[in-house]
Amino acid sequence: MASVPSKHYTDDISLLVVTLDTNPFFWSTFSFHFSEFLSQVLAFLNSILLLGQLNQVVVIATGCNSCSYVYDSSSDRNHASTNGTMPAIYSNLLHNLDEFVAKDQQLTTAHKPGTVPSSLLSGALSMALCYIQRAFRAGPMHPQPRILCLHGSTDGPEQYVAIMNAIFSAQRSSVPVDSCYIGSNNSAFLQQASYITGGIYYRPPQLDGLFQYLSTVFATDLHSREYLRLPKSLGVDFRASCFCHKQTIDMGYVCSVCLSIFCEHHDKCSTCSSVFGQTQSDVASADSRKRKAS
């Protein structure tokens, strides 16, 4: 006798939140051109939408002064501003991105010339998590969310606490953070983010094949990841930044009460106001200074 087929909510419906590095200082110094990067990413986003009618893509632009949602495939406003030559997703995204960059420029504050400021990764992550939380609360039938960080600029140690908080909240709501890092050195933040949340960290060695990397590694939905072997990062840089000067440190002081990290000895924890003991403090701080100098 024919029976009604049993149905389960299929796991391969994805909500992909992409944070896009739009740090102009980085791109103008980087060998790979932004327009090429963008066209590969756009093709990737379009193919994600193509894979399933219910798939959803959200793009967050990450500048060095601000962050903003530049595209949401579920939003109704997407129908406007099509000129017929390219799909709505492209023209919408590009339009919003252009506006965002203009706004970001206005917010520019003076920074030391000759250096590349870091992008606001912490802000982008927080926005992504907020969006995902909204999806969670919309009902039991939400798609499987994941975050993909497409970044190239160097880590900003001053964002350490905020980024770690974002990572832990992502871990808590079991949202994996994938990172595709295109910069020359590995990003410790993104490595940790992916490691802690169970996402994939990968640094593509050949950037002109970026689409291939994206479609092979990062297009994999969470359901399929159970069955596939994906790149694992081996050496994760677990170094922390201190809370007081935002420097990446190898060794430091940890508050025994709240686990705040400091690079030098303090009388009182700035986070939980615990008073630290005085014994051997001089010796220890001298030690640490020596280490830093070497």
Binding site: D11, S47, G52, Q212, S215, A219, T220, D221, S224, L228
Partner: peptide, 11 residues
């Protein structure tokens, strides 16, 4: 799902 991914990566 897996087949989708294969198509995409061999595109």
């Amino acid at each position: 799902p897996l087949a989708k991914k294969y198509v995409l990566q061999l595109l």
